[in-house]
Structures are given as C-alpha cells and as structure tokens.
Design a protein around this nucleic acid. Structure first.
Length: 567
DNA sequence: GATCATACGATCGTCACTATTCATAGTGA
C-alpha cells in the first residue's frame, strides 16, 4: 500500500459516509486525512502509529485506521459502508449536478445502481419527476454522463498510468529472462491520458516472461494468453498487453507499438519509397532484414534521425527529422523557477517557508507564491490587506533563506467582464501576476475571447493561468478564439501558462505548438498546493515537449532578473 | 473525527450561482 492507495480508501470512506448522511465534519475529517496523506513525502507504511498521529488532520482514531489500511489493505468501516450501497455507486460521484443529497434520492426513489441505470432514467424522463429535480437538472446530468462516456473513453490520466507503469516495470525487472523492457503506446508518447499499457519485452524464453507477467499482484483477470502475447486487466480496470519479441526485432516492435498510428503510416510510406518493407518485425529489403534491433537503426535506415516519442504524431516531425531540424525540446533541468504555487494563506497545504525550502531542495532558483484573490472565497482568497501581511512574511523568509529568491505573486481572478479581482495598485506592488478564470467558464466564445484579451491587455498581468480551464474527464475547455488570444498576447508581450497539474495540462500540446508558432512565450508551472506537488513540473514538461517547446520558448528558463521584460 | 485549550465541549474554509417548491436546498469552486 502506498500513500495514494491509503488515501483512496479514506476518500471513498468519506464519500460513503456523506451519502449515509453522516455528520459533515466527520466526513471532512476523513477527506482531510486523505489529502494530508497524499501530501506526505514519506510513505505512511513506514511510519509508527505515533508518527502517523503527528500528521496534521490525523488524530488517534484515524491513525489507528490508517495502520489498519496499511496492514490489511482494507478498512472494516469501508467494508461495512460499501455493503450498504450499490457496488458501482462510486462511479456516479463525478456526475456534474449530483452531490450526495441528490444521489441518495436517486438510489432510494428510483433504485439507480449504476451509470447505465442513471442514463436510462434520464432518457426516459423519470428524473425530472422527482421532487427537487426538473428538466434543466435532468439535461445537465444527461450531458455530464455523455461527456464522461464519450470524452475520455475510459482513459486514465497520464500521472495515474505512470504510477501503475512504475510498479509494473519494477515487477517485470525481477524476471531474469527479460533482456529489454519498455512500456510503449501513448504512455511512451506521454499523452495526457492513456487508454491501456503496451508492455514490450525482448527475451529468448518468452514462456518465462508470460508467466512472470501474469503473476503481477494487481492482475485481476487474464483475458488472453498465448506464446508471445498476453492481456490482463488490473485492479482498477487498466488493461495491459504484453508482447514478447526476439532481440533482433525489439527496435521494430518498439516503433510499431509506440505509434502513433499516423506516424507509423508515414514511416511505412517512406520505407516503401525506398523499396523497403517496415513492420513490427523489422525493416526488410526483398525479404532480408536491414534493421530491427534498435529504433535508432530503423530511423537511420530510413534516412532520418531518431525521433523522440513525444513528437511522434505526424505533425511534421518526420519532415523536420529528414531536414535535420528537429527541435531541441525543453528538459526539466532547463527550468530555473516555478511561477505558480499556493500556500496556507489560501488553499495550499503547506507554509510558505516549507514550499520555498522544498523548491530550493528541488534545485530551483526562484519560486513565486501565487495565492488566490478574494473572489475565490472558498479558498479564503487574499484582499490587499492580507497581501501586505503576506509580503511581510515573505520578506522575513527571504532574509532567513539563501540560495533561492522568493517572489510575491498572486493568482488573481479574471472576472466575467475581463477586469481583475484586485485593483491595479495592489497588483503593481507584486513581483509576479498570474491571472486565471475560475468561474463562468461556459461563456460564449466571443465573450470568453474578449474576457481573456482584456486581461492580457492589462499590463500588470504576466501570465494567463490554465487558459482553457478544462479538467480532464470532468470539464470541457472553455470556448475561445485561440489565434486571437495568441495575436493579442504576442502584441502585448504577455505569456500563457502550461499548468502541470495532471488533470489540467493546460495549454495542451497543440496549443503549445500554436503559441510557439505565434511567437508567444509559455511559462511551465506546477500550480502546487503542497510541497509534494512541486514535482508535478515533470508533467507540464511532457506536455510542452509534445508541443515542440524548446528552452527559449519558456520564460522560466531565464534567470530571475530577466523575467519581466514587459513592465 | 480533529483540534483547541477557561480541558469539555464548541468549532470546524465561504459564497455565488442554479433550479425549483421562487426562498431555499444543493452544488461547486
């Protein structure tokens, strides 16, 4: 059990307690504990009960329960509650417009037990007849269901897939028969969501590899198993396919299974034009192998240089490679600072000092603390008065700590008319201003374009945070005219954020590419709400790399003194 | 269920928006 597993049990317990009508504060205690555990940088499994008790938000009772979860993988309370509700109920948690109260009503009155039940109830118009429901709610719920079903198509966030991939790779490495191992597919291309994992192994004894693979502890079902191929379903529903190939074909298979499909089609066309045949077994001329052992070998034989998986979408990378003009993509080591982070002043879970120390330990030269502005009441957003208090604390910390520069920033809300949630003089006193939209995201494209452009034109604004506002699997991006936004950003010298939260990754890859082509700089930021979150930069980097972003396209690769050319 | 602290019992992020019972409950950030 790692921290995320433990947190998941507590979080689900909270959900079910809430549904059972439990005291709201008890529910929140479980939720807070789950969050606290997610924030930990050490594994709770390695801690004594006393040490667990010291984690904020965890008292004697929950500490005991955490130990139980760690030791048994389960919690009696969780078990008990789960027995009271339909087994597939938790899949309804994320439906927009459905909270615990309405969900409870649906279970009790309409005997809704799954997504399918709910979908049928919506279709037959039964929802609107319930007291408290009406046509509009019914429609909203129907739309949300559709978005979930179609939009993500059962895909998992990259970060979640990465966790599974790491565990699986560790397991597979214990298999002596394996010579080489890669997880290919969209995971290797670092797409923002991943449908399934394609594991590729090279070995002479494939039977031994098969056996070892099926023995992975999280396997719940073996859906196929032959001599060189096996498919399993893991706990949590992720499908994993394994292919075992001989070493002489490993490179070819890796190209083939990494994709994308359109990239592969393009490669095969090039092979054909040269009188070659490319497939998953190798590159052949008149039946005899020309290449196949490594990817490099294959690309070289096709007359182009190796292309990093993130670029393999047939968006011009093959032409660029042929012309020797592949971009030198941004790397984690290029980033000097993080320009979007939160602290206890609003909805962060760590003190400013803790955030700064962690950033320094991570090798950053500067960090901007950018808490929310007052419009976000739930986060206890800052007004000018509290901003001044925060400035004093930052100054104090800056005096105490060397080796890192602390900037005072803000994540100021862009109000619905495009004005900002704080007056210009308050913003003017700050070192860094992120401006973001957090509500009324469903405006028309014309309205949203105007709103964002107005914010961009405000000279106090340095960067637009998570520009589209999307939440993968939960909320569609808002509509706006990207080329107009880019035109104005370019004109004004304003930058756009690549937010590294796994559920955001916003700008997305194609928008990154559009920004680069429009001459607009991006800022890659963690939007960290805890010290642990500061590591999320990795995911923003992935997305930026998929969007052809190079070091010079990214503002926070510059030294602190060169950050604000704009004002 | 955790935390604070007149040490047992009170307190625990807030507010805008939506839909419906049009003043209020529920949700969402």
């Amino acid at each position: 059990m790692d921290n995320d597993d433990v947190a998941k049990v507590l979080g689900e317990t909270a959900d079910m307690l809430e549904l059972a009508g439990e005291n709201f504060f008890r529910v929140r205690a479980y939720r807070n504990a789950a969050q606290s555990i997610r924030d930990q940088t050490v594994q709770v499994a390695d801690l004594t009960p006393e040490q667990i008790d010291e984690i904020p938000g965890i008292g004697a009772d929950l500490a005991k329960k955490v130990r139980t979860v760690v030791e048994t993988g389960d919690l009696p309370l969780h078990h008990e509650l789960a027995a009271k509700f339909p087994p597939r109920l938790l899949e309804l948690r994320d439906v927009s417009g459905l909270g615990p109260k309405r969900l409870k009503l649906l279970i009790d009155r309409l005997n809704i037990r799954s997504r399918d039940d709910l979908e049928n109830a919506v279709k037959s118009g039964r929802l609107r007849k319930l007291s408290g429901f009406g046509p509009k709610l019914e429609q909203r719920i129907g739309e949300s269901l559709q978005r979930h079903g179609a939009g993500q198509g059962g895909r998992m966030l990259y970060a979640d897939a990465a966790r599974i991939a790491a565990q699986l790779s560790a397991h597979m490495r214990n298999c002596g028969a394996i010579r080489k191992l890669e997880i290919a597919g969209s995971f290797r291309r670092r797409r923002e969501t991943v449908g399934d994992l394609d594991v590729l192994a090279s070995a002479d004894d494939s039977a031994a590899v098969m056996k070892h693979f099926i023995g992975f502890p999280d396997v719940t079902q073996v859906t196929g198993s032959g001599e060189t191929k096996a498919s399993v379903v893991l706990k949590g529903g992720m499908q994993v396919d394994l292919r075992v190939v001989p070493p002489k074909s490993f490179g070819a298979a890796l190209v083939y299974f990494t994709g994308s499909k359109s990239h592969n089609v393009h490669l095969r066309r090039i092979a054909q034009a040269r009188g070659l045949l490319l497939n998953e077994y190798g590159l052949f001329r008149e039946g005899s192998a020309v290449a196949g052992r490594t990817e490099q070998e294959i690309y070289r034989a096709l007359g182009i240089s190796w292309i990093t998986p993130e670029l393999r979408e047939d968006r011009g990378e093959i032409e660029a490679s042929a012309a020797g003009k592949l971009p030198r993509l941004i790397e984690r080591g290029n980033l000097r600072g993080d320009l979007h982070t939160h602290s206890l002043y609003t909805d962060g879970h760590a003190s400013i000092e803790a955030m700064v120390r962690q950033a320094r330990d991570n090798g950053l030269e500067y960090i901007a603390i950018t808490d929310h502005s007052r419009r976000l009441a739930m986060a206890h957003g800052l007004d000018p008065e509290r901003l001044r208090e925060q400035r004093k604390e930052i100054d104090r910390i800056q005096k105490k700590l060397t080796g890192i520069t602390v900037l005072q920033g803000i994540e100021v809300d862009i109000l619905e008319d495009g004005t900002l949630d704080l007056p210009d003089d308050a913003l003017g006193a700050l070192d860094w201003v992120v401006a973001s939209v957090h509500y009324k995201l469903e405006q028309s494209s014309a309205q949203m374009t105007r709103r964002l452009c107005k914010a961009i034109r405000n000279r106090k604004v340095d960067v637009i945070g998570h520009p589209s506002g999307r939440l993968l699997g939960h909320r569609e991006p808002s509509n706006f005219d990207l080329s107009e936004i880019l035109r104005v950003a370019r004109e004004e010298g304003c930058t756009l954020e690549v937010n590294s939260q796994p559920v955001r990754l916003d700008l997305n890859d194609t928008a990154c590419l559009a920004a680069k082509r429009a001459g607009v700089k991006v800022v890659i930021s963690s939007d960290a709400h805890s010290t642990r979150d500061l590591q999320l930069l990795e995911y923003g980097i992935n997305q930026a790399r998929r969007g052809w972003i190079e070091k010079d396209d990214v503002l926070n690769t510059r030294p602190r003194k060169d950050l604000r050319a704009r004002r």
